[in-house]
């Protein structure tokens, strides 16, 4: 009796696991193993011996500055996107605006958050490039030469402004439902207890929104950090950011050491991974009061 029931359980367990076997195999083959392969490759030299040399070689001025610009652009565009996105979401949820503005902005955000890559670069070249609409209009109308101020679309600032085009809408899309979740009674309760508008946001509104704000900001950061198409189409290979460097390395071994490329990739995974760990840790702290 007991053997019969245990073999029955075993068979059922096997069937259960077989059900997600295709998914597990897919994830292993096309996500996990390729990533681990790179990670482990970063610790071996061309002769197959274990070494930290590749990691140490990352600390050269070119590679370090590439990481630094990448981090700066990702941080600036994610923080800028988070801030502006928050205000836009706040405006449509709590600003008392007509409802068509809300639905219009949400629809547009759905489109704009997916409008990235090469075409986005084209759009900004046509707008803020040397012969772009805004550049030309500023020159013709106000006699103001944007490029004489040192502005360059192919720079940190230019890239940040361009990336925000898909960062802001992403923030709006994720934060709108979170703002909808703020109950009217919380605000009224704080008001009748004597709190000002600012006190409400500082002590109740923002702490409650904090996890979603944080999570989205991390997503925006990783989003910008790994993006290559827009930057590549904007600048060709001229801008020294990590994804472009890695791209060039894959295409032609510009680093003259294939295993250094692994280390470069490992660096990217470590940075996005670390931001993720940071996010999880902060979120756990912020969510002590949730189920």
């Amino acid at each position: 009796m007991s053997t019969a029931s245990s073999s029955f359980i075993d068979r059922r367990t096997i069937i259960d696991w077989l059900g997600i076997a295709p998914f597990l195999i897919f994830a292993l083959m096309f996500l996990i193993v390729p990533t681990l392969y790179l990670v482990s490759g970063a610790f071996f030299n061309a002769q197959g011996q274990f070494t930290f040399q590749n990691i140490a070689d990352l600390f050269t001025p070119t590679i370090m500055s590439a990481y630094w610009i990448s981090i700066k652009v990702s941080l600036a565009s994610s923080l800028g996107g988070a801030l502006i996105g928050f205000f836009l979401a706040w405006a449509i949820v709590l600003g008392g605006l007509p409802s068509w503005i809300r639905s219009g902005l949400l629809t547009f955000s759905g489109v704009a958050s997916n409008f990235a890559g090469v075409p986005l670069a084209f759009a900004f070249i046509a707008t803020l490039g040397r012969t772009g609409l805004v550049t030309v209009l500023m020159r013709d109308w106000f006699g103001f030469n944007l490029y004489s101020t040192g502005f360059n679309l192919l720079s940190f600032l230019g890239l940040t402004i361009t990336y925000m085009f898909f960062q802001i809408p992403l923030m709006v899309l994720i934060l709108t439902p979170a703002l909808d979740g703020l109950k009217k009674e919380w605000r009224e309760a704080s008001e009748i207890l004597g709190a000002s508008n600012w006190q409400y946001w500082r002590m109740i509104g923002l702490p409650i929104l904090w996890p979603s704000l944080l999570g989205t900001s991390l997503l925006l950061f990783a989003n910008a950090f790994g993006a290559i198409a827009t930057a590549y189409a904007l600048t060709g290979a001229s801008l020294n950011i990590v994804p472009i460097l890695l791209y060039a390395q894959i295409r032609g071994d510009v680093l003259h050491n294939p295993n250094l490329g692994y280390a470069l990739a490992l660096g990217m995974i470590v940075i996005t991974g670390l931001s993720n760990v940071l996010y999880i840790w902060l979120r756990m702290r912020a969510e002590r009061w949730q189920k």
Binding site: K183, W186, E188, A189, I192, I204, I208, W289, Q290
Partner: peptide, 12 residues
């Protein structure tokens, strides 16, 4: 004031 749906601040 006491509200119908408790309205306690969930983060406190």
């Amino acid at each position: 004031m006491v509200f119908q749906a408790y309205a306690l601040f969930p983060n406190m």
